[in-house]
Amino acid sequence: MKIECTLNGQRKTLDVSSTRRLLDILREDFHLTAVKEGCGEGECGACMVLMDGKAVNACLIPAGNLMGKEIVTPEGFKESPRGKIIEEALIEAGAVQCGFCTPGFVMAIESLLNEHPHPTEENIREGLSGNLCRCTGYQMIFKSVRLAEEKGAGLW
């Protein structure tokens, strides 16, 4: 199937099997390896990307559902002002340990702040509930959201 979509700001025409997972397309065809596979069943959030600005798990998306979509991976978000703020906040909060879940959390935090520029405690917990982290116990990730909210005031 020929699929037209936008990937990290560039228009692409994919010629792939319509059942191929976005996760495999990103990692194998485009070498965008910030998108990690932790479970392959939408439970862990390690493969999270933005699709039309919303956080989604790339392992659950067949190529056929990409038609006309705009996909952003951590690689495509890195140099944005919001990306830089989230990076700073994660480092300062001590929210990175093994790091396997972290790019997914970056996507989740972006999506969360996009929806709630001044999130409540409940918003933060709920907004990150699609991402598993086994190292940190989440507290420092919560803190990073607060730091990003402060440091990036006006950006979201």
Partner: peptide, 27 residues
Amino acid sequence: LAGGTDLMVQNARGTGLSPNFDKPLLF
């Protein structure tokens, strides 16, 4: 197939392998 969140998991086969459906998908 609409969102695919159930079907993609029910038919998943692992890394690098597309889910296996016994019929073509209608998006």
